[in-house]
Design a protein around this nucleic acid. Structure first.
Lengths: 242, 242
DNA sequence: CGCTACATTGAGTTACCTCAAAAATTGTGG
DNA sequence: CCACAATTTTTGAGGTAACTCAATGTAGCG
């Protein structure tokens, strides 16, 4: 189950930043980093502080939150295995990340990571590339949220979640997966009310496309069907214009 | 009007990346870069190719577009003065940028820029920071689009446009500004139909908050009023929850 | 088991969408 | 410079997806 702390057995080792890191022997053999497990709710990133360590998510999901002065929190994104946290400077003080579920993080002490950054010239570019891809992803997601109906937004989310949570090899196509967010949070993230979200879930459930048990377990029964709904976006957006 | 090609007279010189660049004498004196003016519609970035030059927008606005296989284009973002284009690798092949209006760009030949990158260790981090801030901005904007009504989205856009287009010192607070997008494009960008957009513009117009002339000229008469509408977001989002 | 918090379902309302027509702006040839 | 077509924007009328408010159902916990 849990991996040994060496890159070759790590489920995220094929991600961009890990690939760059694994060019260093000390990293590949697991001597630079420690795999830490954090409980749901643990603060992984505090935007107002320099991070004590750099971390790459190995399993689990983290919420990215914006905090208002009054302390109120708004979900602005999610982090999945392969994504990283650990800023060198407090660039965005109102941004925090916290574990949405129990989460495994591959952690490098700040100093260690800084020296890796200096010694490995491919590392920073790899991080930058990762961020650029994420930016593009967020932009596409924004369009999805603003132009597509609630059902498709939900379908898209579920498909994305499934893809990013599935550990290579480890899982079957239609395993039960854990929702990282409560209904309230998920509705907020998808830009709808909990009532609308609940109705859309019911639609998918009674169409036989998904199965739910308890509040947080979902199983995709017809992935293909769900994916069609999710990508109905592109097709009907195309029809619409020009 | 047009600046001399030296950083000290340049309206964007106080932006992050320019500040980093201006640490080099050859840059500060304007020997590395050329100020180019491109007409509306000019292709500034082709995501499927390595860019011939690195450019920082000095005046004007550029559209960021996603291209589908069928050639259909969707607006995913805007670039303003201080933002930059010019990738080293074709990371996001379906992404292009084109001038939304006539636009001035401070251009560095690829080779020159690469060597600057190597010689100035603060440059890449500055670019990275810029991108991280942009990512955060897009995330906040996404929330705006998904949670706020059409009128507020439009108000927010106008306020943002005003802030980012205004050259330091150069303009009066309530100058006429040029809309970088047609109604169709703007509606698409703001996630509404052209009809709804038009109605919201009319509302602002008849409330005396803005003035329009022709298709592309807007003047904000009551900036404060508009800003209140724009940031009604935070206030009423706060009221809503917890 | 009963309490509390969260999720689902129901009924009525509204903001935005769709379809259709009128008005304004831009481009073109005389 | 003006008339006229083409394009884009605005306005109008009616429909619908999603919202709000309210009630019911269900999961988790002492």
């Amino acid at each position: 189950m849990g991996h040994t702390g060496r890159c070759h057995s790590c489920p995220v080792s094929r991600h961009r930043v890990c690939t760059a890191l694994a060019q260093m022997d000390s990293v590949r053999s697991g001597r630079s980093s420690i795999l830490r497990r954090y409980p749901k709710g643990h603060l992984l990133l505090d935007g107002s502080r320099v991070a004590e360590r750099f971390g790459i998510i190995v399993t689990g999901v983290a919420k990215l939150l914006h905090i208002a002065e009054d302390g109120h929190q708004k979900i602005v994104g999610l982090l999945f295995p392969g994504d990283f946290v650990g800023q060198t400077q407090p660039l965005i003080p109102h941004l925090i990340a916290e574990a949405a579920s129990s989460i495994d993080v591959c952690c490098f002490p700040r100093r260690t990571f800084d020296s890796l950054l200096k010694r490995n010239p491919t590392l920073e570019p790899a991080m930058y590339s990762h961020t650029l891809l994420e930016l593009d992803d967020v932009r596409a997601w924004t369009r999805m949220l603003t132009h597509r109906p609630a059902l498709e937004r939900l379908a898209h989310f579920l498909v994305k979640l499934d893809r990013r949570m599935r550990r290579p090899g480890h899982e079957q196509p239609s395993d039960v997966m854990e929702l990282p967010l409560s209904r309230t949070e998920l509705a907020d993230y998808l830009g709808m009310t909990i009532e609308t979200l609940s109705r859309q879930l019911t639609r998918l459930r009674s169409a036989g496309i998904i199965e739910t048990s308890g509040r947080f377990k979902v199983r995709i029964k017809y992935w293909q069907h769900l994916d069609m709904l999710a990508s109905a976006a592109e097709t009907s957006e195309r029809d619409a214009q020009d």
